[in-house]
């Protein structure tokens, strides 16, 4: 299958204001550093990593919500990074986003109906009022809310319901790609499953592609066809779900997977988890060579000097580690 969206060598940098009287040069935080991937129609690519690994910045960089410092995002034959602002706005009909905090991502002064109808107003201004309303009602019903709720405000809904509203807003312009930035992380367990299933249903019905960003490996495993693991802005490993969870090759992926608590009292965590020691290095001053080397159990001198390339361990399975053949 051909790629719907191709991301090549994308980097997202933030410049922090120069602090102090004498430090003149602003600091640069490399949130995303040289990340490439493809997203195919109808598939979900899970992006996993811990706090500060740049997974959210990656999603925002792809959608041009932050301006990438380098790299290309190819969408329908054009590079989004090179397009003028007006042209990007037209592409937003097809490229949508769902945020983590369901309540704070909805304007508290607008009704649910207005919130869901807004993308239609922007992208289909010619649509008659009645048609618009019909489509909003159908969309609300599709995400599991009663259309009669359209005149209510976000503060009257629970977290899970607000996330349904966000999904309706993202879906109503019939996009082809949705970036889901931790869409279920702030929800309760029983609501998480509802939202995950809703996204899976919508994907089955519409063939939409999802870039599913999460720190929760269990959910990424449930949602994704392929997985991309990030650490300090760089890709550590990427591969199909079965290969990745079945036989992770990168020592970081292995530690990450083994650290997930398994709901089974007969498997005590102390024995099976490969606990990483040490602290996450500051993203302002990442280690030289391989960014993971300071916590890696397999680190050797070459890791200090050379950044490992993404080696192909198997077709479609890339590992950025000097010692991947030994893992």
């Amino acid at each position: 299958m051909t790629a719907l969206l191709t991301v090549e060598h994308l980097s997202v940098h933030y410049s922090l204001p120069a602090g102090g009287l004498f430090r003149r040069r602003p600091l640069t935080l490399k949130a995303v550093d040289d990340v490439s991937f493809e997203l195919r129609a109808g598939e979900t690519l899970g992006v996993v990593g811990e706090t500060g690994c740049g997974k959210s910045s990656l999603g925002k960089g792809v959608l041009q919500l932050v301006k990438p410092a380098a790299g290309r995002v190819l969408w329908e034959g054009q590079d989004l990074c090179a397009l003028p602002a007006e042209a990007i706005k037209r592409c937003r009909k097809d490229l949508q986003i769902i945020f983590q905090d369901p309540l704070s991502s909805l304007n508290p002064r607008m009704t649910i109906g207005e919130i869901v109808a807004e993308p239609l107003e922007v992208h289909y201004p010619a649509l008659a009022r009645d048609d618009r309303r019909r489509r909003v009602d159908a969309m609300l019903e599709r995400v599991g809310l009663r259309p009669e709720m359209r005149n209510r405000y976000p503060n009257e809904f629970s977290g899970g319901q607000c996330q349904r509203i966000s999904i309706a807003r993202a879906m109503i312009s019939e996009p082809k790609v949705i970036v889901c930035d931790e869409p279920v992380s702030s929800l309760d367990v029983s609501i998480q499953a509802q939202i995950c299933n809703l996204l899976r249903d919508l994907q089955r019905d519409t063939g939409i592609a999802l870039l599913f960003i999460s720190h929760d490996l269990s959910i990424v495993r449930y949602m994704s066809h392929r997985v991309l693991v990030m650490y300090l802005g760089r890709v550590m490993e990427t591969g199909g779900r079965e290969e990745f969870f079945g036989a992770p090759r990168h020592p970081y992926s292995q530690a990450l997977i083994s650290a997930v608590p398994v709901p089974d009292p007969d498997r005590p965590p102390a024995e099976r988890s490969l606990v990483l020691d040490g602290e996450l290095p500051s993203p302002l001053d990442p280690p030289s060579g391989c960014v993971f080397r300071t916590r890696c159990p397999l680190a050797v001198p070459v890791c200090i000097t050379q950044m490992p390339p993404l080696s192909e361990a198997a077709p479609g399975h890339g590992v950025a580690c000097h010692r991947w053949q030994e893992t």
Partner: peptide
Amino acid sequence: MPSLIIDP
């Protein structure tokens, strides 16, 4: 509960 032991 999604976990690493369910069938995705």
